[in-house]
């Protein structure tokens, strides 16, 4: 309960954070209810089936965003793809944040040869050019599941989080309050969880948001150049279809514009959350009255 009120207070204190969270929240809600929305559009049948409707219908009352080259309802497709994109972001974000945080804390807090090995390993992964490797990987990945795509992308995105968090751990672990905790008989794990972790929440949040963004855009990048892994329809896939079929010249502009607007909004929202978190968690920026 106390945590909840603290969270609400933080959100109230930062307009950026609030705006970012609202946009993000709306998108997540849309994604969560996408099966319902898709059903409603179809009115009993599947609106994303091939030849469900006539092809290349212009946007109108029946089809808000028109239909595509196979006669599928674009609005329904966009909803479903948004949900896929967000899921990819969440899966890759969680995997790379957890991996990054664990590696960062072990390396930063333990130091010595453990740090040496882990840092070298993260360093090696960091300098590997990710995109070509992703292209190569997705060439082999036919009909992969959402989760597998998420794992594939997070292999390359956790080192970023690990590197930034490790440097913070290095600076935080020599703080006097850590020494005070040690003379108060606190164990290593306790110090990490109760003394260091709370101060690193903004960094972890930023790490999560940037890996999620990286994953979403990484996949979009693959899809747009037509090299995405088969079996996953995300926002990038729709953009790719719009480009290859010349949808813009056929008056089916929503197929191209709507996914891009959604991706831009997502990018803006996550960045606002990032900046807002940093503002809020820097205690010097907190009000003097505290409450």
């Amino acid at each position: 309960m106390r945590i909840l009120t603290a969270v609400l207070r933080t959100i109230r204190n930062s307009r950026r954070l609030a705006a970012g969270l609202i946009i993000l929240g709306v998108m997540v809600l849309l994604a969560l209810f996408s099966p319902v929305i898709v059903n409603a559009i179809g009115g009993g049948k599947d609106p994303i089936e091939v030849a469900a409707y006539e092809k290349w219908l212009v946007p109108g009352p029946g089809h808000l965003l028109g239909t595509d080259q196979f006669g599928r309802d674009v609005f329904a497709m966009v909803m479903k793809a948004l949900s896929v994109s967000l899921q990819i972001g969440a899966i890759a974000g969680i995997i790379s944040t957890v991996a990054g945080v664990i590696v960062a804390f072990v390396a930063g807090y333990k130091g010595g040869w453990i740090d040496g090995i882990l840092s070298t390993f993260t360093g090696i992964l960091l300098v590997i050019p990710t995109f070509p490797l992703l292209i190569a990987l997705s060439a082999y990945a036919k009909n992969v599941s959402l989760f597998q795509v998420g794992v594939m992308i997070s292999i390359f995105s956790w080192p970023f989080a690990a590197k930034t968090i490790r440097s913070q751990v290095l600076s935080l672990r020599t703080r006097p309050y850590v020494d005070l905790a040690r003379v108060s008989k606190a164990r290593d794990l306790e110090i990490i969880v109760t003394e260091l972790l709370p101060n690193l929440l903004p960094f972890i949040g930023v790490g999560f948001a940037s890996s999620a963004l990286g994953a979403i855009f990484g996949l979009v990048g693959l899809e747009v150049i037509g090299l995405g892994p088969g079996g996953v329809v995300d926002l990038g896939q729709i953009i790719y279809n719009a480009i290859t079929t010349g949808a813009l010249t056929l008056g089916a502009w929503p197929m191209f514009v709507v996914p891009i607007v959604l991706l831009t909004l997502l990018f803006a929202a996550l960045n606002m959350v990032n900046i807002g978190l940093e503002e809020v968690y820097n205690p010097r920026l907190r009000g003097v009255a505290g409450e």
Binding site: R175, P176, Y177, D179, L180, E195, N199, P283
Partner: peptide, 13 residues
């Protein structure tokens, strides 16, 4: 102990 820096001795969180 009593440490030197009265600012850094408290976890700001």
């Amino acid at each position: 102990p009593v440490f030197q820096d009265p600012y850094a001795i408290f976890n700001p969180f």
